[in-house]
C-alpha cells in the first residue's frame, strides 16, 4: 500500500529528470564542467546536519547529485555560531577546490554577496533566499505560501466541514499556527496558511503564536497546548527544531498537527497526519543539473512552487480519507492551472 503518493510522485519526477539528464550526457554520468575534471561543489551549511529539515534535505540533494551526476562534493558544517559562517564560506572559496559553492538561508546573504564579488570565477548558489543582479550568484526560493495554502485548506476541512472524518477533531472551526519568529520567511508560511483556511471556510479562526526562536522546544509545546486549550483542532508548526514540541503536544493531548519542511508524519503517527515539504534537495539537484547543462540562470532569483516540485505534501493516508486527498489534489491542479493564486508576503 502506498501511504504517501506525493513522495512517490516527487521521486518519479526525479527519476524522469535523471533519465532526461542521462540522455544528454550519453549515460556516462561523469560529464566534465569546463575542463576535464568533474564539477566540484561545496555545500556550506550555517548550522549542522541533523536538523531533520532544511540542512539534511540540502545534503540529500547534493549527495544525489554526487551519485547520479558524478559531481564531487564536500559538505561543510559551519555550526550554529554566526562568527564561523563567513570564514567557512571564504575558506571554501579561497581554497580554489570548488567550482560551485552552495549555501542557504537569509543569514548568509551578505556573506555570499561579498564572496561573489571577491571570487568572480566561482559560481554561488543560495537557497531559501532571493539575491538578484550578481552575475555569478543564482538564488532559489520556495513558494512556502503555496504549500502552506494546502496545509491551511486541509486544516480548515479537518476543523470544519470534514470534522466527521477525523475522530480527534471537535469541529471547532479553529486552527493554530506556531511560528519560530515573527520574520518575513515565517510569515510567508502564515499568509499562505491563512489563505488556505479562508478558501475552505472564511469563518474558521486561525490562532497565531511565535516562539521567539528556533531552539526552545518546550515553549513550542507550551504554545501549542495553549492553542489546543483555546479550541484549536490542528496546529501547524513552522519553527525548525522547536516545532517538534508542537508535534509532541498534539500527541500528548491527542489532537492533530501539521509537519513542515520534510515528512514529519512518522514522528507521531495518527497525530501528525500531513506535512508540508520544502524540497530543498529537489531544488539543489535541479540547480546542479541545470548548471552542467549551462542553463542555470545566474544573476536571477527563482521561486519554485508546487509546479516545479519545489514544495509538496506528504499525506498519511492511513488517517486521511481518500475523499480529502482528492480534494487536495484538485486544489493542486487548480493552483497549477493558475485558477487559484496564492499571495505571498514577500512580494
Amino acid at each position: 500500500m502506498i501511504r504517501r503518493p506525493w513522495l512517490l510522485f516527487v521521486s518519479l519526477a526525479l527519476a524522469l529528470s535523471l533519465l532526461a539528464g542521462c540522455a544528454t550526457q550519453g549515460g556516462d554520468g561523469k560529464k566534465a564542467s569546463d575542463g576535464d575534471h568533474p564539477l566540484s561543489v561545496a555545500l556550506v551549511l550555517n548550522g549542522t546536519l541533523g536538523d531533520k529539515g532544511f540542512f539534511d534535505s540540502a545534503a540529500r540533494g547534493i549527495r544525489q547529485a554526487g551519485e547520479e551526476l558524478g559531481v564531487q562534493y564536500k559538505i561543510i558544517e559551519a555550526t550554529y555560531n554566526p562568527s564561523e559562517w563567513e570564514p567557512a564560506l571564504l575558506a571554501a572559496a579561497s581554497s580554489g577546490k570548488y567550482d560551485m559553492i552552495i549555501t542557504g538561508t537569509w543569514q548568509m546573504t551578505d556573506i555570499v554577496k561579498k564572496a561573489a564579488q571577491e571570487y568572480p570565477n566561482i559560481k554561488f548558489v543560495i537557497f531559501d533566499e532571493a539575491v538578484e543582479g550578481i552575475p555569478n550568484v543564482y538564488s532559489v526560493r520556495y513558494a512556502e505560501n503555496e504549500g502552506s495554502f494546502l496545509a491551511g485548506a486541509f486544516a480548515a476541512m479537518l476543523s470544519g466541514p470534514k470534522a466527521d472524518s477525523f475522530p480527534k477533531s471537535k469541529g471547532n472551526k479553529t486552527v493554530g499556527f506556531v511560528g519560530g519568529m515573527d520574520i518575513p520567511v515565517i510569515n510567508n508560511f502564515r499568509v499562505g496558511f491563512e489563505q488556505g483556511v479562508a478558501h475552505v471556510d472564511p469563518n474558521t479562526k486561525v490562532l497565531v503564536s511565535y516562539i521567539g526562536g528556533f531552539d526552545d522546544v518546550a515553549k513550542g509545546k507550551e504554545l501549542a497546548l495553549a492553542q489546543f486549550s483555546q479550541g484549536a483542532d490542528i496546529v501547524y508548526n513552522v519553527a525548525g527544531n522547536a516545532g517538534l514540541g508542537v508535534l509532541e503536544a498534539s500527541k500528548e493531548i491527542d489532537k492533530y498537527s501539521i509537519g513542515v519542511d520534510m515528512d514529519q508524519n512518522p514522528l507521531y503517527p495518527g497525530n501528525t497526519i500531513i506535512s508540508m515539504l520544502k524540497n530543498v534537495d529537489v531544488s539543489l539537484f535541479r540547480a546542479i543539473k541545470l548548471h552542467m547543462e549551462g542553463a542555470l540562470p545566474y544573476g536571477k532569483a527563482e521561486t519554485l512552487g508546487i509546479e516545479d516540485n519545489g514544495i509538496g505534501l506528504a499525506i498519511d493516508e492511513q488517517y486521511v480519507p481518500k475523499e480529502i486527498v482528492d480534494e487536495l489534489s484538485n486544489l493542486i491542479v487548480q493552483m497549477k492551472k493558475g485558477e487559484i493564486k496564492v499571495r505571498s508576503s514577500l512580494e
Partner: peptide
C-alpha cells in the same frame, strides 16, 4: 524535567535561557 517531563526528547540548546 526538561528532557523527561516537559518534553520527551533532547534538542540542542533546549534550555533556551
Amino acid at each position: 524535567f526538561m528532557s523527561m517531563a516537559y518534553v520527551n526528547m533532547f534538542l540542542r540548546n533546549m534550555t533556551a535561557g
